[in-house]
Structure formats: structure tokens, C-alpha cells
């Protein structure tokens, strides 16, 4: 099980004595699942995503991708394997949607390569998968927040990553678009991609994710199914809330209800 894991964090620590941002986090995830990375503000979720994607080197410990230390991967090879969707949706120049999505192909193209059939197909597929094909020739500055979020997701998908690490991909979106983006991520996972998503919305996390990883104060304190991770005692101790469980068909979701005095 440990050896077949696609992405592994071994005793990852970030920061120094006192209160490290991440403290000895150990995690092992395989392909084909949608994993929710949850935890209160300041728990270290964004830091963990950055370490797993190779953007931040851990102070101690190591990350392994396909059994090989992430640091030993070449930059381009790593960029082809791991897609990272930043929390920031700031696009600095008013380029077209198509051009923006095409940036996802950069790790696949040599500096002087012309656009290949493969590049064009990957962009087309990504635009269709995120339902933004009709926006192809629009300038990104004219998009709504929901459209831009989907276009940025298409940019990552165009790279065809084996691992997709997304930092709050649905924050700031209306309910319809949240469901749409998460449905898209889940179907991506069903097709064999490892998708890990930082989320604040416990209701959506519990409804969509196959597995939840809970961080608090830089430590991984729970890792498993929704029932294992989000039971009432833990919601009270970590988030300071109590919650109700909602069921429809065979799906279940957690709905935070009251703040509890802690």
C-alpha cells in the first residue's frame, strides 16, 4: 500500500522550533480519488499543498512522487505530472481564454516548438471539460468570477497532470458553480487522476470527497472517510461547532449548525 502510493509526504515539517507551520505530517495518497484537505484557518493547508506540489521545500522530511523524491524530479517532468491551482485568481494581463489555457501546455513544449496537435487537443478537451468552450475568444478581464475559476481550472487540466492539487478552487463561487466545479473534479478523479482539494466548506467536502485529511495547528490529526474524520466530537474540538448530518439517497453531507462554547 505504502509503495503503490502516487504521492507521499514523509514526516514533512515546515518552519522551525516553536510553532512550525507543518509538524511531521505523514500522508500517502493513491490515484483515482478526490481528497479533501480541510482544517480551520491557519492550520497549514495551503503550506501542505505547496510542499506537495514542490513549490516549497520542507524544512525536514520529504515528499515522494511515484516513489521518487520530488526534489529529484526535473522541473519540467514535475510540472507535467503535478498540476497546481493557486488560491489567487489574479490574471495579470488581459489575454484571451484560449491563450491562458494554453499556458498549461508550457511544460510539454520545448522553447521553440510550434503548437502540436496534442497541445490543441488538450486545450480543446480542457475547455469542454470545464464548460468554457464558448468563452474561448473572450478576454479574461471580461469574465465573471465563476467563469474565471473554471478557465483557471481548464488551464491546469490542459497540462494533463496525474496529480492535481487545488487550493480553494470553489471559494467565492455561487452554489451552482461550486457544484459544477466539484462535479468536474470528481469526474477527473474517476478517470484516474489524484485530486486533492483544499476546502473550507465542510458540507461540500463531506458530500464530494472520497477521503478527508484534517489538519490543525500544522499537525495531521485525522485521515480517512467522512465518518471517520468529521464525527461530532472532532467538529467540536477542532472547529468549535456542532453539526447536523444530512442524507439524500446514499449520499451524506455534514452541515455545521451552531458554534459551541470552547
Amino acid at each position: 500500500m505504502m509503495d503503490s502510493a502516487l504521492l507521499q509526504a514523509r514526516k514533512v515539517t515546515v518552519g522551525y522550533d516553536g510553532s512550525p507551520v507543518l509538524n511531521q505530517v505523514a500522508l500517502s495518497v493513491g490515484s483515482g480519488s478526490l481528497i479533501g484537505l480541510i482544517g480551520p484557518n491557519g492550520a497549514g493547508k495551503t503550506t501542505l499543498i505547496k510542499v506537495l506540489s514542490g513549490l516549497l521545500a520542507p524544512t525536514a522530511g520529504q515528499v515522494f512522487l511515484d516513489g521518487k523524491p520530488l526534489a529529484a524530479w526535473g522541473r519540467d517532468a514535475r510540472a507535467r505530472a503535478v498540476g497546481y491551482l493557486s488560491q489567487s485568481r489574479l490574471v495579470h494581463w488581459p489575454v484571451t481564454v484560449e491563450r491562458l489555457v494554453l499556458l498549461g501546455r508550457l511544460p510539454h513544449r520545448g522553447p521553440w516548438d510550434r503548437l502540436s496537435d496534442e497541445d490543441a487537443t488538450a486545450v480543446d478537451t480542457a475547455l469542454l471539460a470545464t464548460d468554457v468552450e464558448s468563452l474561448r475568444h473572450r478576454t479574461v478581464t471580461t469574465l465573471s468570477g465563476g467563469e474565471l475559476a473554471r478557465v483557471l481550472l481548464a488551464r491546469v487540466l490542459a497540462g494533463g497532470p496525474k496529480v492535481l492539487l487545488a487550493d480553494e478552487p470553489v471559494s467565492g463561487l455561487d452554489p451552482g458553480h461550486r457544484l459544477q466545479v466539484l462535479e468536474g473534479l470528481r469526474s477527473l478523479a474517476r478517470r484516474g487522476c489524484l485530486v486533492m482539494v483544499v476546502m473550507h466548506d465542510l458540507t461540500l467536502a463531506s458530500r464530494f470527497c472520497d477521503r478527508l485529511v484534517l489538519l490543525d495547528h500544522g499537525r495531521l490529526i485525522a485521515d480517512g472517510s467522512v465518518d471517520e474524520v468529521l464525527h461530532m466530537d472532532r467538529l467540536a474540538s477542532v472547529y468549535g461547532v456542532d453539526a447536523v448530518s444530512v442524507t439524500r439517497g446514499d449520499e451524506q453531507a455534514i452541515l455545521p449548525w451552531n458554534q459551541v462554547p470552547g
Binding site: 519540467d76 507535467r80 498540476g83 489567487s88 495579470h92 508550457l106
Partner: peptide, 12 residues
């Protein structure tokens, strides 16, 4: 870098 520094780094 149109996408910011983190995204540019993640693109290799």
C-alpha cells in the same frame, strides 16, 4: 507569470 509566481513555478 501572467498567472502569478506560484503558478509560474508550478509550470516548471
Amino acid at each position: 507569470l501572467t498567472l502569478g509566481e506560484d503558478a509560474a513555478a508550478s509550470l516548471g
